[in-house]
Design a protein around this nucleic acid. Structure first.
Lengths: 250, 250
DNA sequence: CTTGACTCTGACGTAACGTCAGGCTTTATG
DNA sequence: CATAAAGCCTGACGTTACGTCAGAGTCAAG
């Protein structure tokens, strides 16, 4: 017998396996972004493996901020799955950066609140701005330029790697901030660990890109401003803390 | 002259400073979530400093997934700004975890694609699920329970700290994955740095919570499964890599 | 052969604004 | 100081991505 050569899903099964709703799949069918490649004789939708792959493409593009009807068009044109995976990841990186920035600000304001001084209007304006930035990053409607780029090749792998390490900064900063707030001693092992990670990140750049390495290294050397501007995070107190921890080790 | 004792913004100014649209502010006024505390004699809206603070609250709750009309109710009841800041941050942490998980999966699939073997249906199903998880995390409609918790006290500070360190794992995993994919030598300095960060994260738990420390340490000792299950990330190859890097150092 | 669970195709509802329209106000400018 | 140009006001309808019935056929189990 020709056993199931290639799997097929009924709409409810696919919904259950993916977490989407049946209605959403109906909707995609209706708009033409994802038409199941087969139907049973009685009209039930049957999704094939390639339909599942296309569904991922739809989800990726949707998360990239494209309206569904535009997605239909993009998918009928042809883009390799590799390019899409990369674009998707890059977009996630941008979102992560925006969210970490907001998170750091949030931590700072909350920490300040706990140590007595209340948040000012400026703080709130800043927070609101960053919330909006996160929103915009998530929505990010594409202009034709960028849609064109999706077809072309983009993002040197180097860029991606650098972005990733760079994206790690806000997280680290937030943790150091937490340690400082908690009054952790610079000679403690916890402080040592943090200092190690900090230096680790700095070193990461040694092998990588020259330009960015330069700026980030200076960020450490010249202290404060750049880091504050670039990451919206806290600053000099942390660098002092790391310095103290580093010297305390010797 | 009584100079401007406390600032006031016309709607366009506030929009410009926050990144919101005038229409959105109109909308909030209409729904009653943010009524400017004053108007000029000719009917222009004037937002005060406390209005700005309330606006942040609105944005925070909106990002927490509450529908606007519910926000009105919550804000008229009274919750301290500190609690809100904490809740907001916690929610961001949850989103970050979901997004990092997706990102890691994305990196793995893309990397596999580059080294020859194409992505399978299973990969796509997994990716779709994770996209949906991110979506759900972002939307996260609250049930009454959780709304009640917003009024109570929550989140031992310890929990937050642990969550943060835990949240750092996916990032690190992704970077190690990248290194492995790039064929980085285990004895290289880059590998050493990664190993250092890895061990650093493990150590972070030493001081913290007992339970989680146990599980994460075992994660390293017993290898693979847990880490894979918990973080959806790649696994054994990375641990091998870290082990190799660690031993290569001695 | 009868349920109960699933699926189908409309069709209307909704949330959070976007986008005019028509009409005052305020500010900039010759 | 007259007159644009720019900003603000209040409706009111449009939009996106589904949610939520409604009415009717289909499939799997007992």
């Amino acid at each position: 017998m020709t056993a199931q050569q290639t799997r097929a899903w009924k709409i409810g099964q696919l919904a259950a396996e993916t977490g989407l709703t049946v209605r959403a799949l109906h909707h995609y069918d209706h708009l033409g972004v994802l038409r199941p490649s087969a139907r049973t004789s009685t009209g039930y939708r049957l999704y094939s493996e390639s339909d599942v792959e296309r569904l991922y493409r739809v989800m990726a593009l949707r998360q990239l901020g494209l309206p569904l009807d535009a997605i239909g068009a993009v998918l009928d044109g042809q883009t390799s799955i590799g390019e899409l995976l990369d674009a998707h990841r890059e977009h996630l990186d941008r979102q992560l950066v925006a969210m970490r920035t907001l998170r750091a600000q949030l931590a700072t304001v909350a920490a300040a609140g706990r140590t007595g001084d209340a948040a000012s209007v400026t703080d709130f304006l800043e927070l609101i701005r960053k919330v909006i930035t996160v929103d915009d990053t998530i929505k990010q409607y594409f202009n034709d330029e960028q849609l064109a780029q999706l077809a072309e090749r983009r993002a040197t792998l180097g860029e991606a790697a650098i972005a990733e390490v760079e994206a790690a900064w806000p997280t680290l900063i937030a943790r150091v901030q937490a340690a400082v707030d908690a009054g952790v001693d610079a000679s403690s092992t916890q402080a040592q660990q943090l200092a190690a990670e900090w230096m680790g990140l700095l070193e990461q750049f040694h092998g990588g890109d020259e330009d960015l390495h330069g700026s980030l290294y200076r960020m450490y050397a010249e202290n404060t401003e750049r880091i504050e501007a670039q990451h919206g995070g806290p600053p000099p107190a942390l660098i002092e803390f790391i310095k103290a921890a580093t010297t305390a080790r010797n």
